[in-house]
Design a protein around this nucleic acid. Structure first.
Length: 520
RNA sequence: GAGGGUGUAGCUCAGUCGGUAGAGCAUCGGACUUUUAAUCCGUGGGUCCCGGGUUCGAGUCCCGGCACCCUCACCA
């Protein structure tokens, strides 16, 4: 008649009434399980005559997973003696328990991994052993003990003293299958992190990737800044924004959809190498590759151009791979990605011709193909139609990593034109397995042309409530002089997906947006 | 927004033709001082996602709703 919850409350009360704080305390000198593991070489076997022997390689496994060395047999063969090892203090969560009478084995987990704890009644004493009897799966405990090996060779902390750190009132997920329900994995990410293999590593890898990006940019002299997330005009991209409102100012605001326009203002101010790594918000559809809020890197470098930014992009990705200990070849689902540099660079028009068989200038042919693909070319600029066909016929088939370079100028309102051909914009996008990972260009710094392009863009999309409104303030900034520059945007979430073998963006965002789950 | 799938014990999942609601793990009680998803014996546990309907009878069939997943649409 005891529910798991009641049982835990009863144990909590018993711990309390024995004079122990069930919510733990300061625990100085505690080391991580990985550090305890690395001290395993200090474990020796001491014979009665005082000589100490190195242990055999008990961690070596046969193909079937069993130990190559029978440690119990080895000890017997050495004659009378005892194992000696360093004293360590560890702490973590109880994830498995195997009580065998007056002895309890505990698998203790911290964020560096698991280590086994041996709690023997004779070794820890009556009071500690009674406390151990109140342990539940999920509880946090601290252990002082000697590092050693069990008969099977398993590295183990032989407990000498136990410290209770935190009672867990909810039972953990099933111990072998783990938490499977994708909804619960997201809503209760802490359970996913704590109990499912590989989840912690994925999110720690995400952090390493982000750190690596900061280091790569710092090495090139870049300066990190924090722009405003509340904008009056949603600019720098074409996406529907989230609308909000400031009460005191009684002013409508939008959450930013891109970092671009404020970073360029900083170029005007003379911050010559500037980047922001931050959250942007787009009020659009949700899919395995789209979350309403996501993390973007944008970097701007004065006196550079899109080719410099292409090299930088490659450097950022290769450094990130290294940071998480991966080589050039990585698995992604049932596919592989070959990051061996240099990444391919192909022009937009070449790829278009190759995949459609049509000349990039064949406006009629392209329109016909568009209709065949179910697109409506009527009333659209030929380059927009071409772009839609490109997305349909080319992008999905780009295995990559491949830089697509030199886009039609008319679909790139923020990009400088090639001096040799004003119809081509100095822009690239990086594709991997059909996914757009980066977007960059030589920045347009002609304020008059910029204003004109904004205006053209607005005319073509007048009906859309969402599309960029004229950002006069940005044009004013440009009128004050922005040095020629290269600019780069990288979708961090997608990069992390590709580098950590995640099929869904929700596997690498800790708390993706979900609907309210309360009541029906 | 459209189509498809899923929702049953704390967790992972079965549930046949519409006929008393099942297993494993976890819990609880017992045995066990070198286990490894420990083992063995015993025990309790259900808003079958929510609301209607059909039926003598619904976890199962029908209608509506909710949440999640997938595909598509949207997405510089």
């Amino acid at each position: 008649m005891t529910s798991p919850h009641e049982a835990r409350l009863e144990k909590l009360n018993r711990i309390s009434s024995s004079g122990i704080d069930p919510w733990g305390h300061y625990f100085p000198g505690r080391i991580w399980n990985s550090d305890a593991r690395s001290r395993s070489t200090e474990i020796k076997f001491q014979l009665e005559n005082g000589t100490t022997l190195e242990l055999p390689d008990v961690d070596a496994k046969k193909d079937d997973g069993s130990s190559q060395v029978d440690y119990r047999q080895w000890k017997t063969n050495q004659g009378p003696g005892q194992e000696i090892g360093p004293t360590v203090r560890v702490a973590g969560r109880v994830v498995l328990m195997r009580p065998t009478g007056k002895l309890i084995f505990v698998n203790l987990r911290d964020w560096t991994g698991d280590i086994q704890i041996f709690i023997g009644k004779g070794q820890v004493g009556e009071a500690n052993f009674q406390l151990a009897g109140e342990f539940d799966l999920g509880d946090w405990i601290g252990v002082d003990g000697r590092l050693g090996r069990t008969n099977t060779g398993e590295l183990t902390v032989f407990a000498e003293n136990l410290h209770f750190m935190c009672k867990t009132l909810e039972p953990p997920p099933e111990k072998y299958a783990g938490l499977q329900d994708p909804e619960l994995k997201q809503r209760q990410r802490y359970l996913d992190l704590a109990y499912n293999d590989g989840v912690m590593k994925t999110f720690l890898d995400r952090t390493k990737i982000v750190q690596s990006i900061r280091e790569t940019l710092a090495k090139r002299g870049y300066c990190e800044v924090e722009g405003p997330t509340l904008h009056t005009v949603a600019g720098g991209a074409a996406a529907r924004p989230f609308n909000t409102h400031h009460n005191t100012l009684d002013m409508p605001l939008v959450l930013r959809i891109a970092l671009e326009l404020h970073l360029k203002r900083l170029l005007v101010g003379g911050i010559e190498r500037v980047y922001e790594l931050g959250r942007v918000y787009r009020n659009e559809g949700i899919s395995p590759r789209h979350n309403p809020e996501f993390t973007m890197l944008e970097a701007y470098e004065a006196f550079a151009n899109y080719e410099v930014m292409m090299d930088l992009t490659e450097q950022i990705i290769l450094d990130a791979l290294k940071a998480i200990g991966k080589g050039y070849e990585v698995a992604w689902g049932d596919k592989t990605i070959d990051f061996t540099p240099p990444f391919a660079r192909r022009s937009y028009d070449d790829l278009f011709k190759e995949h459609t068989g049509l000349a990039p200038t064949d406006i009629t042919g392209i329109a016909n193909l568009a209709r065949k693909l179910g697109l409506d070319p009527n009333g659209k600029h030929p380059d927009v139609v071409k772009s839609e066909v490109f997305e349909e016929k080319v992008e999905d088939s780009l295995v990559g990593p491949i830089f697509v370079i030199d886009y039609p100028a008319s679909i790139c309102p923020l990009t400088k034109r090639k001096s040799s051909n004003p119809l081509i914009a100095e822009r690239f996008e990086l594709f991997i397995h059909g996914m757009e990972l980066a977007n960059a260009y030589t920045e347009l710094n002609d304020p008059m042309l910029q204003e004109e392009l904004f205006r053209t863009q607005l005319e073509g999309q007048a009906d859309e409530d969402s599309m960029a409104k004229m950002d006069h303030d940005f044009v004013l900034a440009l009128r004050n002089g922005m040095p020629p520059a290269g600019g780069l945007g990288i979708g961090i979430d997608r990069l992390v997906m590709l580098l950590t073998n995640a099929r869904s963006i929700r596997d690498i965002i800790l708390f993706p947006l979900l609907r309210n789950q309360t009541t029906n």
